[in-house]
Amino acid sequence: MQRILLFLYSLRAFLLFVLLEAVAIWLIVSFNSQQGSAFFNSSNKFSGKVLTAQKNVSEYFSLADVNARLLDTNAELLTELEILRKPADSAYVFVDSVLAANFEFKGAKVINNSIRLSQNHLTINKGSKHGIKPGMGVFNGEGVVGRVKGVSTNFATVISLLHTELLISSKVDSSEVFGSIKWDGVSPRYAKMLYVPRHVKVAEGDNIVTSGYNAIFPEGIKVGVISEVKQGSDTNYLDIIVELATDFTKISYVYLVENTVEAELDSLYKSSGISNE
């Protein structure tokens, strides 16, 4: 017995190494899922505070750029407003609330962003206190950014579109052909569109927008532009490369969108046995 104990004692460094490594692997496996807890990542209270302090300094360097983008968005919205404005002699018809908007929007500031890993995340300065929930869609003035992963009181972690396991249901704007956008991990400018059958005609330069099928994003938020269509190695699907609309190197402010009927939709899908990507 004593010899066994002595033997184990002589291996103590190795045993500790194995134990701690097992803890690390457990952390990797259990906290890197898409719906993680907010404790062991950048949205916990402590790291959120540090990142906010850092962002408060560094955001001065990008003020001019942010201003220019806001001006662009403003101009677009003004144009849209002009179209919606009723002419003087028009009559107003009340539309039933069934057709009313099912989406609510919120704004937030990005305090942490990465683009060079293969599983990138952002951190934003709004949390459960401000009504942010896991699963909400995130976009900015240019296009889709990602999806909320974990939420703490004041901060939230967002899975970037530049994450090799995130699928965004989207469609070709002109022809309504739908597929899933997935990042391949190489360049932050390009992603791939999966599950588009070979017989479908798509052309370079077609716009890709969100499809609205998976209830995270409303229909029609811009994702990117098709830059290349190849026959590819897969016998069933086309190989489509999409140039992303969002410039991930310069994200400062984002909007979050919440689907107010998502719970209803989810339970409907569940009860009818449909799993949506």
Partner: peptide, 13 residues
């Protein structure tokens, strides 16, 4: 370091 990189456990390992 993992906390800030959002790579829980990878730097640790």
């Amino acid at each position: 370091v993992d906390l800030f990189y959002d790579t829980v456990g990878i730097h640790t390992a």
